[in-house]
């Protein structure tokens, strides 16, 4: 069996990222969008860790840890916004919340 090289990790990350993007663009529920966002973050993290390993540099690890921490905070804010949106619109479906327009 061939050695797992950097390309394998990159392809995994690409797949995860694409799933995330697809989710963000198509999920109707705001919660779903938030979950898909997390997928995208983690795709990026995989990328960073892979580069970190193969290029023998610690920077990527540090970035990844930062992103995990920031993503946790971001999820909190995102959920809080969703609660506010629910209180205003009684709905969290993204396609229904479209009053800010022409």
């Amino acid at each position: 069996m061939a050695m797992t090289g950097i390309n394998h990790y990159l392809i995994l990350s690409l797949i995860l990222f694409s799933i995330g993007v697809f989710g963000v663009l198509t999920r109707r529920s705001a919660i779903g969008i938030l979950l898909s966002l997390e997928l995208m973050f983690n795709a990026v993290n995989i990328n960073l860790v892979a580069f970190s390993h193969f290029l023998e540099s610690i920077s990527g690890h540090i970035f990844a840890i930062f992103i995990i921490a920031v993503a946790a905070a971001e999820s909190c804010v995102g959920l809080a916004i969703i609660i506010c949106i629910y209180r205003t619109f009684r709905d969290i479906r993204a396609d229904r919340i479209n009053t800010l327009k022409w």
């Binding site: 663009l25 969008i33 479209n98 800010l100 327009k101 022409w102």
Partner: peptide
Amino acid sequence: RYEESGSVQHYA
């Protein structure tokens, strides 16, 4: 202005 649909996913 019709580009401004108000839908977040549209913008995304």
